[in-house]
Amino acid sequence: MGQSSSTVGAAAGYRPSATLPFAAEFRRQASRRRTQLALGFMVLLPLIILIAFQFDAGDDDRDGGGGEFSSLADLATSGGLNFTLFSLLVSASFLLVVVVALFCGDTVASEASWGSLRYLLAIPVPRARLLAVKLLVALAYSALALLLLAGTALLAGTLRYGWEPLRSQVSAQLDPGEGLLRLLAVLGYLAVVLLAVAGLAFLLSVVTDAALGAVGGAVLLWILSSILDQIEALGAVRSFLPTHYANAWLGLLSTPVQTDDLVRGCISAIAYATLFWSVAFWRFTRKDVTS
């Protein structure tokens, strides 16, 4: 019946490593309305921003704000690259966090709440494989969301504002080619930082059966970390907060590129993600599935 030693005694055609293929899980998630909405919004957001900029009445109200936000906002209409950068800036701190938490926090918890998780385990899909495939698919969708956002913004911004050099307040302007490279690096760093959110949401997804709890919990903890990061009295403790280096990608805009905080940010994010995922796997491969 079985073909190899590992499938001895199994039904014909069953191989543990062939269960729940990546494509199957990808389709399972693709058919969900929340996936379609989240990805759709990633496409829509840059267009909304673009339209909003059209309403610029021209009265320069530049007294308020300050910091890198206003400078990037002022420069947002100077070219497609700057427009993309602005779109990333406005979505990095919250929207992308929510989207990543949605993809990673919802994936296991929703199956548990539908009751379909136990049928997957009874196929049987090995638990570690189930988690691994679910995690990879969730990460793939998160990356897709990031790329859709950046891609749409770049396309729409370039069509509207042209293929101009990347400008910022902290460095001289960069040639479009160099600017594109920087933009890709910014995307890469954002993706790495969001791994910590992905880890947290995924862990909560495994721990709880309520999808909302996993997604909301991850976002709440992320916000809590951001708030704590604002409290300077905490001193060195802040370096251990997962959000501490979330804005270090601004260093990629300066010339020469400031990588020190990026490196620390990567260490922080990867360490957190590894920790959260390890706990998630450890927990899920041992727990009694009662939902």
Partner: peptide, 8 residues
């Protein structure tokens, strides 16, 4: 030598 600006 000043090498740049620290965003954080």
């Amino acid at each position: 030598r000043v090498a740049g600006f620290n965003a954080l």
